[in-house]
Simulated assay, not measured.
Amino acid sequence: MADEFVERSLDEIRFWSRIMKEHSLFLKLGFTCEDTQLIQEADRFYSIFENIENRALAFTPDVDPRVIYDFNNVVHTATCHIWAFKRKVLGLIIQCKILGSNFPLLVDHVSREAAYFMNRLKQLNTGTLDPLPDAVINENVFFLKIMADHAKFINHLLDPSERKLVEQARDFSHDFDQLLFQAIDLDSMRPQSQTQPLLDQFVDQNRVSVRQLRDFKKTARDLIEACRIKSIIPPLLADHVFREASHFLEILDAFDAALSHSK
């Protein structure tokens, strides 16, 4: 159990600290040059999470679990602070107190990911991870919304002349909205909905759609990096959303294996 705690903690931190670091950069790029204080705050969070990422990568698997417990608490505090920063930025945008190119939905999106990371660190340190039937629904409700958001962002950041890609992104947005509504329905029917056949079908269906979206993101990323399509999507952002889709697919694959083992 101690080894599993260390492995899961470091896996989560290595993945999400990089995500938090990149969020800081994306928010900074969306501020205007007049927003000097916000730019400085974003730079500070970039440094904080870069340091956390480097520390997490430096740990070896045989590290004392008590060290990781303390590290989780440090990371949790930093994530609470960046969550508060993101919510502050969202308020400023919605109240028209700052301009720039950060969509309100994008800022809400990155704050939801910070809240997810905070909750996961707390679960790991308290030993209260969700049972498999609850985890299947909770993770899907969260990540399906994230994937639907990504499709909307890609749609709006592609040049309008990229008609085929815009149409594909719009179709993915619709498809993942429908999958999310279906997941919310399954959630509201708990615990009666948490039967083996229903959860099997739920995971299988979502895996197919997430794999297709991941492949679309990979193609878009490669085209953007090669300067073969017109967009205002930074290559790092294209890779960022690709990595998140790959992460969700890994979670779904783990659920599929766990559900098969429990039969």
Rank of each mutant, 00 (worst) to 15 (best):
W83M: 13
P133I: 06
F5H: 04
L223S: 12
V6M: 06
K152F: 13
A114S: 14
D215T: 03
F117H: 09
K230H: 14
T126H: 08
Q40G: 12
D204W: 09
I13K: 07
S24K: 01
F181I: 11
C96E: 15
T77C: 04
D130Y: 12
L249A: 05
N138Q: 10
M20G: 08
K88W: 10
N72L: 05
P234T: 08
G127Y: 04
L27E: 01
G127A: 11
C80L: 13
N72T: 07
M147N: 04
Q95Y: 12
D222S: 12
K230Q: 15
R211E: 14
K122F: 14
E4S: 12
P133T: 04
V241Q: 00
Q196D: 05
L27N: 02
G100P: 06
E113P: 06
S173V: 00
P160Y: 02
A115T: 08
L213Q: 10
L124A: 01
N102V: 03
A2K: 14
D239N: 13
A114Y: 06
E12S: 07
E4M: 08
A2N: 12
L38T: 01
L157A: 10
V208W: 01
M20L: 13
Q196V: 14
F15L: 02
S101E: 11
D149S: 07
R66D: 10
E225D: 11
L105S: 12
E22G: 09
D64Q: 01
H150W: 08
F15N: 10
Q194Y: 05
E53Q: 15
F71G: 05
T36Q: 11
Y116W: 14
A169P: 01
E53Y: 15
R170W: 11
I98Q: 03
K21V: 05
D11W: 00
R163F: 10
M118N: 07
F143Q: 08
Q182G: 04
P235D: 07
D187K: 13
L144Y: 03
L90E: 05
A258V: 06
D3S: 11
A2W: 07
Q178T: 07
I68C: 07
F242W: 09
K217R: 12
A56H: 08
F142R: 09
S231N: 14
R228C: 06
D62W: 06
C227N: 15
A220Y: 00
R207C: 09
F26W: 00
I146A: 11
S260V: 05
G100D: 03
R207F: 03
V136K: 00
Q37F: 10
R87K: 15
H156F: 15
D64E: 10
D204P: 00
E34R: 12
V89N: 01
K88M: 14
C80M: 15
R221N: 14
S47K: 09
